[in-house]
């Protein structure tokens, strides 16, 4: 497992509850604050909308992407530079977000998660009244 910039990282065994056989991987993410929401972009190649689960429980947001096997069992490996398996990663989300408004979409193996800020934390313009 190499956790450099361009390689795929295995999930450390200590943090994974294995539901099935096989290694899981930590997706690379970008987290960007944009307007009234926080955006999480996660690279989960091979995962479709039907195969992604997003759970939010006690401030912990967990992304799980199930990856079906792509290689036919009757073939022979010549070389392998990366592993194929499910993706999983958990984020701690602070109180300032409106969990009821969380939503996500997936396109070309990239999951985009929208975490809207709670009303009380949104930037607002204060009107200045004339005397």
């Amino acid at each position: 497992m190499n956790c450099g910039t361009m390689t795929k990282c295995e999930t450390p065994a200590s943090t994974v509850e294995q539901a099935r056989a096989g290694q899981t991987y930590v997706p690379r993410v970008d987290i960007v604050e944009q307007g009234d929401e926080m955006l999480i972009f996660a690279d989960i190649p091979g995962v479709t909308a039907q195969n992604v689960d997003i759970d939010f429980d006690k401030g912990a947001l967990t992304i799980t992407g199930r990856v079906p096997q792509r290689r036919n069992g009757h073939t022979r490996e010549v070389f392998s530079e990366y592993g194929v398996g499910d993706f999983r990663r958990t984020f701690q989300v602070g109180d300032g977000f409106d969990a009821s408004q969380f939503h996500a979409e997936i396109s070309h193996g990239v999951l985009t998660l929208h975490l809207p800020k709670a009303q009380s934390l949104r930037a607002r313009k204060i009107a200045v009244k004339g005397a």
């Binding site: 190499n2 390689t7 490996e77 070389f79 530079e81």
Partner: peptide, 11 residues
């Protein structure tokens, strides 16, 4: 490290 990583197999 090279990008993208490749897997190669055959039948």
């Amino acid at each position: 490290v090279t990008f993208p990583a490749l897997n190669l197999w055959e039948d």
